[in-house]
Design a protein around this nucleic acid. Sequence first.
DNA 1: CTGAAAGCGCTTACAG
DNA 2: CTGAAAGCGCTTACAG
Lengths: 342, 342
Amino acid sequence: MKATIHDIAKIAGVSKSTVSRVISGNGYVSPEAREKVLRATEVLNYRPNALARAMVSRHTRNIGVIIYRQHYPIASHPFYGKILDSILETAAQMDYSIFVSTDQEISSRSADFLLEKRVDGLILISRLNHELIDYFKGSDIPFVMVNGSTDDQDVIHLVNDDLNGGRMAADHFLACGYRSIAVIAGPQDHRSHSLRLRGFRARLAESGIHLADRQICYAATSQFQEGYQFVHTMRKEAQMPEAIFATNDMMAIGAIQAISETGGRIPTDIAVMGFDDIDFAAMSNPSLTTVKSAKSQMGRQAVEMLDQLIQGNTDLPKRAQFSAELIVRSSTHSSSLSNHKE
Amino acid sequence: MKATIHDIAKIAGVSKSTVSRVISGNGYVSPEAREKVLRATEVLNYRPNALARAMVSRHTRNIGVIIYRQHYPIASHPFYGKILDSILETAAQMDYSIFVSTDQEISSRSADFLLEKRVDGLILISRLNHELIDYFKGSDIPFVMVNGSTDDQDVIHLVNDDLNGGRMAADHFLACGYRSIAVIAGPQDHRSHSLRLRGFRARLAESGIHLADRQICYAATSQFQEGYQFVHTMRKEAQMPEAIFATNDMMAIGAIQAISETGGRIPTDIAVMGFDDIDFAAMSNPSLTTVKSAKSQMGRQAVEMLDQLIQGNTDLPKRAQFSAELIVRSSTHSSSLSNHKE
DNA sequence: CTGAAAGCGCTTACAG
DNA sequence: CTGAAAGCGCTTACAG
């Protein structure tokens, strides 16, 4: 268990240098010497000490993933968890190990990672503030940003095409013939929610439908409760629209539950649409029409781009944008039928 | 960014030894010397190199988490992801960093972790075979097992009291007055599913209700589809029970969707109960009655126990079992009313 | 209280 | 093709 290069050298009857050469694969070694060394490693069940290696080689093959979120869940979050899964899978294939950490932006605990030289690169997920971005830029550790907004041209960031996704949602509503529409919009300081709303409104406006402010509920968070509450509030005020668009699936599912509880039928009485296509969208009751965000692709690409950066490739695109995709399920009418209630 | 102990020593006008003493906090240092060193670390924005430290101190303050699952999702899995979240949170508080890895039991890739000395201890999640357990036992790295079965008395493992949980589910059904009951049982080679079923049947038997084999659907996986399919199959055969118990929430939610799709009312026509209390149990439509498994406690305790092991504490209980808890929601009748249909 | 020396387990030039 | 030496950035006894 604790064999070192020194033990191998002794058993194989060669120098440590030679052992190192066959283990690392660098430099010439005679077939006989190689054979002896290999045999010795077998006997002692030798594995090189990654720490010592990293110490001199200056790279660890570790990648740090930091997810910036105020609240738990984080790993089990249906959106961020999916990205993390994809990162884990890709990293395993590329022989990187993953450190997972979460942070709340305020603390700079996450910064320890890079200062302590334990990772070759970082994947930063979700929004983080300017100071932090500048901080990372000031370091010599490569990093990519996933699903966070920045107007900094130097920062490599991977984002979903939320603007177009919002438009696609509106398109679908228009095709269904819905004209009385309400929106549950997540935190507008978050890039995704803001762009989704913007795209949605813009597309509607092009068709002459202008959303009044009272038709938009600006939610403080982007959770289930927001959608749930909204429907109950709306119901008291007796102004139920034909269709509701929520800027993410969680809120949409909250709306669905509230509507069902009060005896409303979906989509007959009221249609509901979300955004993201989290796993649960297909399992909700009724299943949720949504716009799929490219969670897996973002995770995979993040690792691949970071790997390029680590290898010193400098001419990478600063921005990778992934297309959204409309997924029609049972919570809205099939748009081809166009069975609206005008 | 790249200041070393050597640079600090030069600026502070002391030896490297002295710098090391103030940084690590070991050994005596005069106030003046300490002051000078501290100032120098400020100036150079010094952070100790974790690799070099671990190299000599023989510990990394890294914990490896290996989740054994055949398929994705893993991090975003509603059950395992929750445990992972809890591990992440606890580890951060205790100043451990977490390596996350997944494995499929066959490969021994996960073993690299311990052989390469990159972690102080391991948390192994879900089931893993005997060889692998023996392998880890043979190493000198401490580890704890979460939610996996083993009859090995030496292995520290944390489990949920699934047997009693199954009994609690049956208790609830009995209190509701359901007598015609079906079960959707997940893979029986998995400890949890098997014990949940066993406890459920045992409790029912005590009240004179013996479940026939045809009332139990043994599912190949434990996913949504299993529950969904089961209901559709059952429906064709026109033998709908009063109530269905699924050995996890995902399958229960699948059943709910299938029942709703075919116009069944829950719980009036048929009641449904799950197990785990994943986040979506509360958000499903109707919300799901279930037995809560101690996901967060298991994650927290796993880290705490592992920390004890790492510190050399040897007299730890080999087994920690966590109580289940009944959560009654809308997919079954409130048992106090006992409004059954006899 | 402090400095010089040795060493953690490797890799990397540099001679031979 | 191979070995001796130096060094990665720390910590740990050991003298003084």
